[in-house]
Simulated scan of single mutants.
Amino acid sequence: MSSGIRFDRVSVAYGGNTVLDSLDLTVEPGEVMALLGPSGSGKTTALRAVAGFVRPASGRVLIGDRDVTDLPPYRRGIGMVVQQYALFPHMRVEDNVAFGLKAQKVAKGEIRGRVAEALEMTGMAAYARRYPRELSGGQQQRVAIARALAIRPGVLLLDEPLSALDAQLRSGMLAELARLHRELPEVSILYVTHDQVEALTLADRIAVMDKARLQDVGTPQELYRAPRTEFTASFVGNANLLPVTVAADGVSFGGVELKVDTGGATRGASATLCVRPHLVGLGAGPNQVVGTVSEIQWRGATHRLYIDVDGHRVMADVRELREPPGHGESVTVYFAPEDAVLLAAGVTDG
């Protein structure tokens, strides 16, 4: 049976230091919600509050319609996977996966089938008799996921589960987690990460955290294409954040009038213009500005140009150039009016 998660104004403090401040957030049944933010933002504390490892100073945690704030972890019906796997080294894979079932006093005859099912689901059926030391990092993480799934939780908590893996393994595990979610649509997943690619790839919605508070929440597309704050714009993908002044038909940047949707902002007001680097083109076009190349990076399929425009850095990701401009060369770049988002200056908190 599917269960959602509800943070009802949850705050957590250690020694007078607030590490989670009045979090009000709902994870819908069957949804993957990523908690995305830098170290110290409160995202892991939020997850631990759901798991029952920290007690909120105020507020409530609900799983489904149950208030679990005062329940011990083993009575919450959750599965959890952490970044360092936490497998028992002296136990074979099958015994690691069975551990939670035995703790729940599931009948012996049922445990074997549930373990086999979880290992099959994670592609680890052939490794049931091995010890963790005989597995790669990626395989150990699959076992940890199988152990969490074996208890058939309504809620699955993932705490930076891929951070200990190298880039290639991480990419493969992302695909595996996405597949698992398709096969287990009734399980609500709370996924803690500081990696924007993981969040954009896996999540139905992303909650952006910073300084113990929720800053923004929305679908990956919403947060990427139309962020509400400068922090969200800079943390969910790369962004050009340009200081502008609202004008009659758009904004003024470096003495150049640019046509963008101002959303009714007051003329003369200071604001920030957000434009993603891959939406900045090289050459003449709408909303063009002229600057000087300060740096150029080859990234395989693209070149990233860093361009100084009136003392402000503009990034442009353009298709690989046979003859890229040189350092100090003057170039013209442009962007379409619909590809820019105007943010109120100084707005960093949701």
Rank of each mutant, 00 (worst) to 15 (best):
Ala271Leu: 07
Phe88Asn: 11
Gln196Ala: 02
Tyr14Phe: 15
Arg129Pro: 01
Val244Tyr: 15
Ala212Phe: 00
Leu36Arg: 00
Gln104Leu: 13
Phe53Leu: 15
Thr26Leu: 07
Ala167Phe: 00
Val187Gln: 05
Asp70Trp: 04
Val251Asn: 11
Asn240Val: 06
Leu165Phe: 02
Arg313Tyr: 03
Gly138Cys: 06
Pro153Lys: 02
Glu198Lys: 00
Val289Trp: 04
Phe99Thr: 04
Asp166Ile: 00
Arg133Trp: 05
Asp339Gln: 14
Leu25Ser: 08
Ala248Gly: 09
Gly250Gln: 08
Glu230Asp: 06
Ala203Ile: 00
Pro337Tyr: 15
Val10Arg: 03
Val331Glu: 14
Leu119Trp: 09
Met124Pro: 03
Asp308Pro: 09
Arg205Ser: 01
Asp210Tyr: 00
Thr245Arg: 14
Leu71Ile: 06
Leu258Pro: 06
Ala51Ile: 05
Asp67Cys: 14
Lys211Ala: 11
Leu101Thr: 02
Asn96Leu: 12
Ala284Arg: 10
Ala345Gly: 10
Leu342Asn: 13
Val331Trp: 14
Pro89Leu: 13
Gly172Ala: 15
Ser188Asn: 13
Leu279Gly: 09
Asp24Cys: 05
Met209Tyr: 07
Val187Lys: 04
Leu47Gly: 07
Arg228Tyr: 02
Ala344Gln: 15
Gln140Gly: 09
Ala150Gln: 03
Met121Arg: 15
Ser136Asp: 09
Gly254Ala: 07
Ser234Cys: 10
Gly79Cys: 11
Ala86Asp: 05
Leu321Pro: 05
Arg152Thr: 07
Arg6Met: 07
Asp349Ser: 14
Leu242Phe: 13
Leu158Gly: 00
Val309Gly: 04
Thr69Asp: 13
Gly113Ala: 11
Val155Ser: 00
Asp339Gly: 04
Glu176Trp: 03
Gly15Trp: 08
Ile206Pro: 00
Arg66Val: 11
Arg147Thr: 09
Gly255Thr: 11
Val256Lys: 10
Ala345Phe: 14
Val260Ser: 10
Gly250Arg: 10
Ala116Ile: 03
Ser11Tyr: 07
Val318Thr: 12
Ile78Ser: 05
Thr272Met: 12
Val246Gln: 09
Val275Glu: 06
Leu223Ile: 06
Phe99Gln: 01
Thr45His: 11
Pro153Tyr: 08
Glu160Asn: 02
Tyr127Ser: 04
Gln215Trp: 01
Ala128Thr: 02
Gly59Gln: 10
Thr69Gly: 12
Gly255Leu: 08
Leu119Ala: 12
Ala126Tyr: 07
Val32Glu: 01
Met124Leu: 12
Leu71Val: 11
Glu257Arg: 10
Glu176Asp: 14
Cys274Val: 14
Gly123Asp: 09
Arg170Phe: 04
Ala284Gln: 13
Ala239Arg: 03
Ala301Gln: 13
Asn287His: 04
Ala167Asn: 02
Ala269Phe: 06
Leu87His: 08
Tyr74Ala: 12
Ala146Gly: 11
Thr122Ser: 06
Arg55Leu: 12
Thr44Asn: 09
Leu36Ala: 02
Ile145Ser: 11
Val280Arg: 01
Lys108Arg: 13
Gln297Trp: 06
Gly30Cys: 03
Ala233Gly: 13
Arg322Pro: 13
Arg133Ile: 02
Gly346Thr: 13
Thr193Asp: 04
Gly137Cys: 02
Asn96Gln: 10
Ala144Lys: 05
Ala51Cys: 08
Leu62Asn: 05
Asp159Tyr: 01
Gly237Arg: 09
Tyr131Ala: 06
Thr219Lys: 06
Gln83Phe: 03
Val155Gly: 00
Ala107Ser: 02
Val10Met: 03
Val106Pro: 00
Tyr191Leu: 04
Val260Thr: 08
Gly281Asp: 06
Leu214Ser: 05
